[in-house]
Amino acid sequence: MGLKLKTAREKLGVIAGEKSKFHLTQGVGEVTTLRNENRQTSSLVNESEVLGRVYEKEKLVSMLLCDASHHDDLSVYAICGMGGLGKTTLSQLVYNDENVAKAFDLRVWVYVSDDLNIKRLTQAILESIEGNSCNIQELDPLQQRLVEKLVRKRFLLALDNVWNECPDKWDVLKQPLWRGKRESTVVITTRAEKITLMTAGDILHRLRCLSNDDSWSLFKQKAFGRGINEGNVILEIIGREIVRRCGGVSLAIKAL
């Protein structure tokens, strides 16, 4: 028993050492995510580098421009799928569509992540609309200011990478959004279908994996730049096997 206790202490010592070595932090819950500024997204996208999302983009744009006219209240659309499929990219394509830009008086892009801090998000929305920093610290004047900006305006709000599943916070965030003009729309991207049910009801788009052809085209674009030598059969065989193992996940293809 003494030997077992000594072995256990040694293993715990190694774990404690790795905690310090890798700067891990203690947290409660299934996943503890450190906020990483480098992962923030913006609305900008290079459409020439996006493959395999034309049909889905057109479908979502059509929903935003046509279906919204049948809703008296705020419309919420959710793009849901596993990490790396391209939810953010699809949202960026829709956000920057020329017809969408013409249809809305205001367009706002906000990166959410796991921190569904109502004051921070409200400030971010205001800063996007006004083009400068917002120094208001209390929630009520923040929301009152946002109402002033949204009233009589048809707006499109994109909330990227939503993780938090707390319905109470979502309800508080939406309070000023109801004051916008009819046909205003919120588009969210998330990995969790539970969040889409909480925020969007039945208005849900499940993002599919890339087809084999689109996956191979994306791989060639990233790996070979100007193009692969078609005579190099062995290189193509290796490349296609790599693509097959990626399972149509665009982020995996780009990384490899």
Score class of each variant (00 low, 15 high):
Lys222Asn: 10
Glu193Met: 14
Leu65Thr: 08
Asn229Leu: 08
Val76Ala: 06
Ile234Cys: 10
Asp160Pro: 02
Ser91Leu: 02
Gln92Tyr: 07
Gln137Ser: 11
Pro141His: 02
Thr88Lys: 01
Ile253His: 00
Arg35Met: 08
Gly2Cys: 09
Leu106Gly: 05
Ile188Gln: 06
Leu34Phe: 04
Leu139Asn: 04
Leu256His: 08
Ser42Met: 07
Gly247Val: 13
Ala16Cys: 12
Lys87Ile: 00
Ser42Gly: 15
Arg179Leu: 10
Gln40Arg: 12
Lys6Asn: 14
Val94Thr: 02
Ala192Val: 13
Arg208Ala: 14
Tyr111Asn: 04
Arg9Thr: 15
Val108Arg: 01
Arg179Met: 11
Lys149Met: 10
Ala223Ser: 14
Gln137Gly: 05
Leu142Val: 02
Val50Leu: 08
Ser75Trp: 05
Phe219Arg: 00
Ala255Gln: 13
Lys153Val: 02
Leu146Ala: 03
Lys149Glu: 10
Thr7Arg: 12
Arg240Ile: 07
Ser48Val: 10
Trp109Cys: 01
Leu256Gly: 08
Arg245Pro: 06
Leu74His: 01
Gln144Asn: 10
Lys194Phe: 07
Arg179Phe: 11
Asn212Ser: 13
Glu130Pro: 04
Gly2Arg: 12
Thr33Ser: 09
Ile253Met: 09
Phe104Glu: 04
Val243Met: 03
Ser217Cys: 06
Pro167Trp: 09
Phe155Glu: 00
Thr33His: 11
Arg208Ile: 08
Asp114Cys: 09
Val108Leu: 12
Ile242His: 07
Val162Pro: 02
Val186Met: 10
Ile203Val: 15
Arg152Tyr: 13
Gly131Thr: 01
Leu159Arg: 09
Gly17Asn: 11
Gly225Ser: 06
Asp160Leu: 00
Gly2Asn: 13
Lys220Cys: 12
Ile242Asp: 02
Gly83Tyr: 02
Leu24Val: 12
Phe219Gly: 00
His23Pro: 02
Ala68Gly: 07
Gly27Val: 14
Arg107Ala: 11
